[in-house]
């Protein structure tokens, strides 16, 4: 470890890379491959969704009515906004605008928190009437023998998505701390770039969750 980077002009290029171009390209490909695993990870839940929806179309139409389209739509717009701000944060890093970089990151974090707060109110209003996952389901408003299955899938999909939002917030807080310390420059902003990719994926998943869970008429 001792002799790494010793004679390098660009200090952020690790010893086994030729230059920063190769390093950034590698990191981005690595992140994209990770996103592939994320897509297939959520994919399992989408498969469950499709299988059960094909079996119980009526149940899904009835259950989706319990969810608030307004709150879902607001959250969609919030996430789109956060995707825009983190893309702007990457741009700021590329243009060496350090103050702007941390400001955009903070706005993104705030938007992510708004998303979670709205999600919290949605969850608690469902819990209050006994719409809980699986065997704890006690709600009687839906007259269907398989009634719990829609909300089990709903909670797992949105719960897993929410977990990704929380992880994203953690990553961005780390980025803000580092950005304040002046770590990221136009020559080195790989962590910002790959975190942004991750965050866009969180947005992408929600883009599919919203019509599939909230907008079934």
């Amino acid at each position: 470890m001792a002799n790494q980077n010793a004679t390098h002009g660009e200090s952020h290029v690790a010893h086994h890379f030729v230059d920063s171009e190769q390093q950034l390209d590698s990191s981005k490909l690595g992140m994209w491959l990770f996103l592939v695993t994320e897509v297939l990870f959520f994919g399992g839940l989408f498969v469950a969704y499709i299988v059960y929806r094909a079996w119980n179309p009526e149940l899904f139409y009835m259950s989706a009515k319990e969810l608030s389209t307004t709150l879902g739509a607001i959250n969609t717009v919030v996430l789109i906004g956060s995707s825009l701000t983190i893309a702007l944060a990457v741009r700021a890093a590329q243009l060496n605008q350090r103050a702007l970089l941390s400001r955009y990151l903070i706005v993104t974090i705030l938007l992510a928190c708004v998303f979670l707060v709205i999600k919290y109110f949605e969850y608690t209003s469902k819990f209050a009437v006994g719409i809980l996952p699986g065997e704890f389901y006690t709600y009687e408003g839906i007259d269907h023998p398989g009634a719990p299955i829609f909300f089990s899938i709903y909670y797992m999909m949105t719960g897993l998505h929410g977990l990704h939002v929380i992880i994203g917030i953690g990553l961005m807080v780390y980025l803000v701390v580092k950005a304040r310390a002046g770590t990221y420059t136009a020559a080195y902003y790989t962590p910002v770039e790959v975190t942004a990719l991750y965050w866009h994926l969180v947005d992408l998943i929600w883009i599919f969750l919203f019509p599939l869970l909230y907008l079934i008429e």
Binding site: L29, W32, F46, V47, V51
Partner: peptide, 13 residues
């Protein structure tokens, strides 16, 4: 890479 993830999701479902 992204398209491949989609392809394999389609295979699975």
């Amino acid at each position: 890479a992204l398209l491949f993830s989609l392809l394999f999701f389609i295979i699975m479902i």
